[in-house]
Amino acid sequence: MSASGTITRRAFAGGALALALGGKSVAQGFAGLGENAEGFAAVTPGKQFAFPADHGPHPEFRIEWWYVTANLTDASGAAYGTQWTLFRQAMKPGGPAEGWANQQVWMGHAAVTSAATHRFSETFARGGVGQAGVDATPFRAGIDAWEIRGLDGFDAQTVAPLELKASAADFSATLRLAADRPLVLQGDHGYSRKSDRGQASYYYSQPFYKASGRIVIDDRPVDVTGMAWMDREWSSQPLAADQTGWDWFSLHLPGDEKLMLYRLRQKDGRENLFGNWITPDGRSTEIAASGNSIAPVAITEIDGRKLPTAWRVALPARGLAIETTPLNPKSWMGTSFPYWEGPVRFTGSHAGIGYLEMTGY
């Protein structure tokens, strides 16, 4: 809000999102994602994905995101991480309204992490006024000056090559992302269950990106290379009302295998574990619902919250038994709906790197 008391369009957009979701994070799952979705489109099995169209927005569903994480190193071998996310949230169902009456609210998150620092930023926009949005062809997702966009030769099946840009007062990131394998459908051919009561999303990933570019932390530029992962999800009710949050891993395994694994937590202490094992040729197989486990092994206190920042992960049928450790245990995203997100390293039966996201703590 300005000194004169006039509400800026950014504050209005952020306030609209807070009004749409605020106060529901406890009663209706993290960030209100368990709220009743009457009037919005339903997620059902058997969807036939179509690209490039499905790279674009799905306004008939309540929420979706375009989500990139990158594990990076500099010439000396020092590790870094970068996150870039664009969220779309519909405040009510129905066809699009014009201008400021548009019911779509957009939110962007970006972060750069090193072993010593974690810098993040958040920005908001209201749909209908040209400040944020996504185009499937040519592909571009952006909010203000933050963007991921297709470059010359863009292939809708590999979602590459891309350029990623984000900047704030104390950090920036510019990356080029290349991939030589098609995107991967998560869950059951893209239908990703979140509970045994019907909550689900449509979900695909591009886990095979090779990344190169530059990050800047506190005016210090660093040239980096590494691996990146994009997640695309959309839904109308991705959580049940009694699910309080999730612990989500994207892991780069030896030999270019990949693992996506997440635990959804309920108020009564029960858990739901889901995931997919991805082979180097892109075959994606659901992880069995039973016989696997993830459990915290170390706690970090941040702003009065106790967060499980190191984990033990076991998938006996895959011969996987690992422990993850964070690059920076203080990778807290103090955004409107706060959560932990940062790069991790793991050792044990397999060794590698990846990302961890934790919500609802």
Results as ranks from 00 to 15, higher is better:
Gln104Asp: 14
Ala110Cys: 09
Ala169Arg: 12
Val134Thr: 11
Leu151Val: 06
Ala166Ile: 01
Ala125Ile: 06
Leu72Gln: 04
Leu162Asp: 05
Trp100Phe: 05
Ser121Arg: 09
Ala179Pro: 03
Thr113Trp: 01
Leu72Glu: 02
Phe87Trp: 11
Ala79Thr: 11
Arg181Tyr: 00
Tyr191Leu: 11
Thr174Val: 03
Arg88Ser: 07
Ala166Met: 10
Leu164Asp: 15
Ser76Glu: 13
Gln186Asn: 10
Asn102His: 02
Ala178Trp: 02
Trp146Glu: 09
Lys194Phe: 03
Glu163Trp: 03
Ala168Met: 14
Asp155Ala: 05
Ala169Ser: 09
Val184Tyr: 10
Glu122Met: 02
Pro138Ile: 00
Gly190Lys: 06
Lys165Tyr: 14
Val184His: 12
Gln186Ala: 08
Pro182Cys: 03
Leu151Pro: 13
Lys165Phe: 07
Thr73Asp: 01
Ala156Cys: 07
Gly150Tyr: 04
Phe124His: 15
Ala110Phe: 03
Gly95His: 09
Glu98Ile: 09
Ser167Thr: 13
Glu147Tyr: 12
Ala156Pro: 13
Gln131Met: 10
Phe124Arg: 00
Leu185Pro: 09
Leu162His: 06
Ser121Leu: 02
Val129Ala: 06
Ala97Ser: 09
Leu72Ala: 10
Glu147Ser: 08
Asp74Pro: 02
Trp146Cys: 09
Gln104Arg: 05
Gly77Gln: 08
Leu185Ile: 03
Ala111Ser: 14
Val105Gly: 06
Leu164Gln: 10
Leu86Ala: 12
Gln103Lys: 04
Thr82Tyr: 05
Ser192Ala: 14
Gln157Val: 02
His118Gly: 02
Lys194Glu: 09
Pro138Val: 01
Ala179Thr: 01
His109Ser: 06
Ser172Ala: 13
Arg193Gly: 05
Gly77Arg: 02
Asp196Arg: 07
Asn102Lys: 00
Lys165Arg: 11
Gly128Asp: 15
Ser76Gln: 15
Thr123Asp: 14
Arg119Ala: 07
Trp84Ile: 00
Met107Leu: 12
Ala90Gln: 15
Ala156Tyr: 01
Gln157His: 14
Gly187His: 06
Arg126Ser: 11
Gln199Asn: 13
Ala200Cys: 03
Asp155Tyr: 05
Pro93Lys: 10
Asp170Phe: 00
Asp196Pro: 12
Leu185Asp: 13
Ala136Glu: 13
Tyr80Glu: 15
Gly133Cys: 07
Gln157Met: 12
Ala156Phe: 01
Glu98Trp: 05
Leu175Tyr: 05
